[in-house]
Design a protein around this nucleic acid. Structure first.
Length: 787
RNA sequence: GGGCUCGUGGUCUAGCGGUUAUGACGUCUGCCUUACACGCAGGAGGCCGAGAGUUCGAAUCUCUCCGAGCCCACCA
């Protein structure tokens, strides 16, 4: 045992708290460098840490718990003897930071000069980032902050661009014009995965269409009357006996007086609305399919600003969708073609970021082909282990439905698409990868030539950026230094672990898997840890709009990061959702205070040099065997990275076996109320040894307190350089005594209570034969009158 | 409509075929006991969602139903 503790002392406060942690945080900053060792004989363990998105307050306790979980895994891996690569990055591209900047400076992005806007956004990001790093550090994240990366750095963006260029060369990228999900609020195309649906109140308008052949009317129900002028057909279900006689006839669109065919189609449901549907470009995804299938002519009547075009007639031109809807209803009512209007709840596609309805608009965008990659991913899926196996299905389900990925965005703060277009013929010019290109600002590399017409001047740079998932989907390549440091790459790729939240399986997990698979012919990781959601105390999702987001900062200030972490570990099984509960966090703090008090006791009675196992008293041998059993169980849990099981086992042993029974049994002996020097030393040694061992077990979960105790009692070096303890004791006969001992102690306590005796009063009671080995400790503990 | 989870004392949670169901928080009672009153000890509180089946035996396996949550796909 190292007996020269540092100047670190146990805190004098009565409870474990934040200020006791701050000193440790400082100590780590100055003395502990948890870096990936190179060279190293240990096996590598590389973690694809999710780069947190810097979008401003409030921060989310769920995110704090998530990073705590990831840190526990990193620390467990170190404890198990791995050489851990634990990077930390900041995801800084994309729409949220643009919105934040617009709000902060009260400006409009698209009306601000681009260079100026980017500068403001960068400044805003730097402030947010500093705050976030502060939070991560105060949580005790043992990541490599010295090499913090940013997805908007030149180096990172150069990687995003060069991986795009590689995909282009492989023929996996194409430019396509197809109806895309367009968000007017964000002014850009978004991917299917970025849409969420919500049931919103809407009006179902029943319109009377006259047939061209006769005066008969057909009633058409629509939630999108403003799209009337884009109507290209009406469909009815052929099995719908009320309406199938209309099939083959033509109807006249009110207001516009244009004829459209009435067509039979299965997708029209007889039991909704009137049974007749107008097919418009584009009301919903079904319209897109119908236009394709029925080869209808599309009319695009909404422009990129979300306003109706002049094709819709004088009175509607220039109106935004919502107003146009009201106006057109009024116009139709004037003409007496509105049969009735129903209030309904309509499942509306919304942009996940701006929460505004999206429209389907044909736009020219870049797409990454996913069909082949999905097939390859499906092939290799069995090589990928999900620590929480139930989550694998989410990925599989999504793979079945995912379409080609639209990767271009009409935004400013993102990685620029590294493409110029020939000023003469429009052919795309793609540069060589490896550098960071800014086409909206700079000309293409010197010597660029159009491969189609040979033109070598007047190139036009693309003004678009990539979807931010294009950046974050290569995080595994960035941190393992793909095409930059072959030695590190060979050691760390594929990475051991991708930890992430369940809500981004469809995006980050899926996109990363297919992109890295495409570029490296390997899956980027061996294991996936999908973490659950942090819900509020009523089990509801926390969201800024509901206002129920709990900020972790005051929680950490109040209870300490270790209490927060212990709670995060012990609250629910790996990957399950958990409810935020301040009262439980305070319960975790009580446990840590208990641990602190055990340490104060151990320090007070003093500790001695190592004593051979054979020299120890039976009680001491007993607790060491129990401790050994705990070590085995915790090691087994830690090998599955199951901090939930481990934390609960550690708490149970520490409190209910070690403190309540063992310490009470040996307290007198440890204080020296015994004239046998050997037995006194035996107790002191065992107390110290058990606590020492427990601190190592606890260190991945609550690193502050375990290191504070470690440094105060045992060593001048941090606990985090330790390996997993192996006691190598195997007197398993002592394990049989545990239950009997606890039962006997309980029985004595009950007797004393029944007889209104205080715990230190004498009592006459006989000690069972099976416990005779522990007799002297039991007599001292309960003050038993030896019969 | 399809799929995936999940229903265990007031709350949360473990157990997932075998003696009186785990632990935490809360609650009640007593107690300043040479670490800790943010403590110690003791107690109350559960037909393990409902029903049926498999089995010598079910919280645990199967089916049906009820309820909750999440995801996906159509609703004009």
């Amino acid at each position: 045992m190292e007996t020269s503790p540092t100047k670190m002392q146990l805190p004098s406060d009565k409870t474990w708290n934040r200020s006791a942690e701050s000193e440790i945080e400082k100590f780590w900053d100055e003395n502990v460098k948890l870096k990936f060792e190179s060279p190293s004989t240990k096996p590598s363990f590389a973690i694809d840490t999710p780069p947190p998105y810097t979008s401003g307050k409030p921060w989310h306790v769920g995110a704090a718990a998530h990073y705590s979980h990831i840190d526990m895994i990193a620390r467990i891996a170190r404890l198990l003897g791995y050489n851990v690569l634990f990077p930390v990055g900041m995801d800084r591209n994309g729409i949220p930071i643009e919105r934040y900047t617009e709000k902060k400076y009260n400006i409009s992005m698209k009306r601000t000069e681009r260079g100026k806007f980017l500068e403001l956004a960068k400044g805003a990001l730097d402030e947010l980032e500093a705050e976030m790093i502060g939070i991560l550090k105060s949580l005790g994240l043992s990541a490599d902050f010295q090499n913090l990366y940013r997805t908007d750095s030149e180096k990172y963006r150069a990687l995003t661009q060069s991986t795009f260029i590689e995909e282009w060369k492989r023929g996996n990228v194409y430019i396509g014009t197809r109806p895309s999900n367009y968000c007017y609020a964000c002014g850009t195309t978004i991917a299917d995965a970025e849409i969420e649906y919500e049931d919103l109140p809407s009006k179902l308008v029943y319109l009377k269409f006259r047939l061209s052949e006769s005066d008969t009317r057909i009633i058409v129900a629509t939630t999108r009357p403003e799209l009337l002028s884009a109507c290209s057909a009406i469909i009815v279900n052929p099995k719908d006996e009320r309406l199938n006689s209309f099939i083959g006839k033509n109807a006249v669109i009110p207001l516009y007086l244009r004829e459209v065919p009435i067509i039979g189609h299965e997708s029209a449901r007889a039991d909704f609305g009137s049974g007749a549907v107008m097919v418009c470009s584009y009301g919903d995804y079904n319209d897109v399919l119908l236009f394709k299938e029925l080869k209808l002519k599309e009319r695009i009547i909404i422009d990129q600003n979300g306003r109706l075009t002049k094709d819709t007639g004088e009175e509607l031109t220039g109106l935004p969708v919502g107003e146009a809807r009201k106006k057109v209803i009024a116009l139709l009512q004037e003409q007496d073609v509105v049969d009735k209007i129903e209030d309904i709840k309509h499942r509306t596609p919304l942009c996940e970021r701006s929460k505004t309805p999206i429209e389907l608009l044909p736009l020219e965008e870049y797409y990454l082909k996913t069909a082949d990659l999905k097939a390859r991913l499906a092939d290799q899926l069995r090589e990928l282990t999900f620590l929480t196996s139930k989550h694998k299905q989410i990925l599989i389900d999504w793979m079945e439905t995912a379409l080609d990925w639209p990767i271009s965005r009409r935004r400013f703060y993102g990685t620029e698409i590294p493409v110029w277009y020939c000023g003469k013929c429009g052919e795309p010019i793609i540069p060589e990868g490896g550098k960071y290109y800014v086409p909206w600002r700079d000309p293409p590399p010197a010597g660029s030539k159009c491969i189609a017409c040979g033109n070598s001047e007047n190139f036009i740079g693309d003004i678009r950026t990539f979807d931010t998932w294009m950046d974050s989907s290569v995080s595994a390549l960035f941190v393992t230094k793909y095409k930059e440091d072959d030695v590190l790459y060979a050691k760390t790729y594929p990475m051991m672990l991708r930890p992430q939240g369940v809500e981004i399986v469809r995006t980050w997990l899926f996109y990363s898997a297919i992109r890295c698979l495409s570029l490296t012919d390997q899956l980027p990781w061996k294991n996936i840890f999908i973490d659950g959601h942090g819900l509020d105390e009523h089990g509801e999702k926390m969201s800024k709009s509901k206002g129920n987001v709990v900020d972790p900062i005051p929680i950490i200030e109040k209870y300490g990061a270790d209490a927060f972490r212990f709670w995060a570990a012990s609250e629910s099984s790996m990957g399950s959702n958990y409810l935020f509960s301040e009262i439980k966090i305070s319960g975790a703090e009580k446990f840590l205070t208990k641990v602190l008090n055990i340490a104060k006791f151990v320090k007070e009675v003093g500790y001695t040099d190592k004593i051979a196992y054979g020299e120890l008293t039976p009680t001491d041998k007993w607790i060491l065997n129990e401790l050994n059993r705990l070590n085995e169980k915790v090691e087994e849990a830690y090998r599955r990275f199951d901090f939930f099981a481990a934390s609960n086992m550690i708490r149970d042993f520490t409190w209910n076996v070690f403190a309540s029974n063992y310490i009470e049994m040996v307290k007198n002996r440890a204080y020296g109320n015994n004239n046998k020097e050997r037995e006194v030393k035996s107790a002191r040694y065992t107390l110290s040894e058990t606590l020492r061992n427990l601190m190592i077990l606890l260190s991945p979960i609550s690193p502050f307190i375990s290191d504070r105790i470690w440094l105060s009692l045992y060593s001048k070096d941090s606990i985090h350089a330790r390996e997993f303890p192996h006691l190598k004791v195997s007197d398993s006969k002592y394990l049989e005594s545990t239950e009997r001992l606890i039962e006997f102690n309980s029985m004595v306590w009950r007797e004393k209570r029944k007889n209104k005796l205080s715990l230190r009063d004498k009592i006459t009671i006989s000690i069972p034969e099976e416990l005779r080995e522990f007799k002297s400790d039991l007599i001292a503990m309960h003050n038993i009158n030896a019969p």
